[in-house]
């Protein structure tokens, strides 16, 4: 049984960075913009989070730094695809490159440097609940923040005017124009907010989960987040569940190895990606019907409506 609890607890810990990135991507895609640069936003978020924590000594300021770095990178995506109408896939991948370069350029000073990371904090009372407590309430503060962030983002998207405008941008942007709103401004805001969340996810990786910075440490989590959003049908609540599923897949390898099972590491490493592909294969067609209309046009490479 403890293996199950280990894997699930590992799923929450390891899945939270993916969840933040998935939430960010949800906000962005709800406005009609897919951002493959999420991987890059996580990278710069991880480095900025780590560096700011190292310089200030406070992981909280570090987390903000990570979010700011993610937002900054996403603002380039917004500029390129929203304002300059560049191709969304090409722009996203370009930003990944930029992030790889920038983080290795500025990151070399922080490799091996020690910081004062987020520490585990047991929620009084709740953490004593068998299983549940161990899985959900013996974690770092950024994980507790995510418990609030998920319903909050749902509320903003579906119960506020701001969310309504973002969703309209993704469904039918000319309805915004007719009502006197600027599509460009709303989409840019959504993309940048999404980048901030992805940056926060990256920061969680470096200052709460791995407590280290090394080059290219995100290794595909950002891309998993992009896929996750699709089969979560652009719903923040389902993103949460999906992220924990992938976190668990990631946690399986160390949990098995700790128990002395001689499983090939790479066979386990590949699980999250194969799992993502399988889930997309099973659910992809069905969930795609729920895609925002203008995002669907991006997926189908349909010429932009004028």
């Amino acid at each position: 049984m403890s293996l199950v609890v280990d894997v699930l607890a590992g799923g929450v810990r390891g899945g939270t960075s993916i969840m933040y990135a998935g939430l960010g991507e949800t906000v962005s895609e709800r406005s009609g913009v897919i951002n493959l640069g999420t991987e890059g936003a996580m990278l710069v978020g991880a480095l900025a989070g780590y560096a700011v924590t190292a310089e200030t000594g406070s992981p909280w300021i570090g987390a903000l730094g990570g979010a700011a770095a993610g937002a900054l990178l996403a603002s380039i995506h917004a500029l390129l695809v929203v304002v300059r109408k560049a191709n969304q896939f090409a722009s996203g991948l370009t930003l990944l490159f930029l992030a790889l370069g920038v983080t290795s350029f500025y990151g070399s000073d922080y490799v091996g440097k020690s910081i004062n990371p987020f520490t585990k904090w047991d929620v009084p009372g709740l953490s004593d609940i068998p299983w549940i407590g161990e899985i959900f309430f013996q974690n770092d503060p950024l994980i507790y923040v995510s418990y609030v962030a998920v319903p909050l983002i749902w509320f903003v998207l579906f119960r506020t005017r701001m969310g309504l405008l973002v969703r309209t941008a993704g469904e039918r942007s000319d309805s915004l124009t007719v009502n006197g709103y600027s599509v460009e401004r709303i989409r840019s805001a959504a993309v940048i907010a999404g980048g901030a969340l992805s940056g926060l996810g990256g920061a969680h990786l470096s200052i709460a989960y791995a407590n280290a910075w090394f080059e290219n440490m995100v290794v595909g989590r950002g891309f998993i987040a992009v896929a996750l959003v699709i089969f979560a049908s652009w719903s923040p609540l389902r993103v949460m569940g999906g992220a924990y599923l992938f976190g668990s897949a990631l946690a399986l390898a160390p949990a098995l190895q700790a128990r002395g099972y001689g499983v090939n590491q790479f066979a386990l490493d590949v699980i999250p990606f194969v799992l993502t592909l399988l889930v997309l294969a099973v659910l992809g067609k069905r969930t795609l019907a729920a895609a925002p209309d203008e995002l669907k046009r991006v997926f189908e490479n349909a010429p932009a409506k004028t």
């Binding site: 493959l36 290794v219 992009v226 790479f266 066979a267 590949v270 992809g284 795609l288």
Partner: peptide, 23 residues
């Protein structure tokens, strides 16, 4: 067959290929 966007799947397959190589 499944209408899953090729940009997303080809990206994920990159990581699978890498793990095949390492394995």
């Amino acid at each position: 067959l499944l209408k899953v966007n090729e940009a997303v799947t080809t990206l994920l397959l990159n990581y699978v290929a890498l793990d095949v190589l390492l394995f």
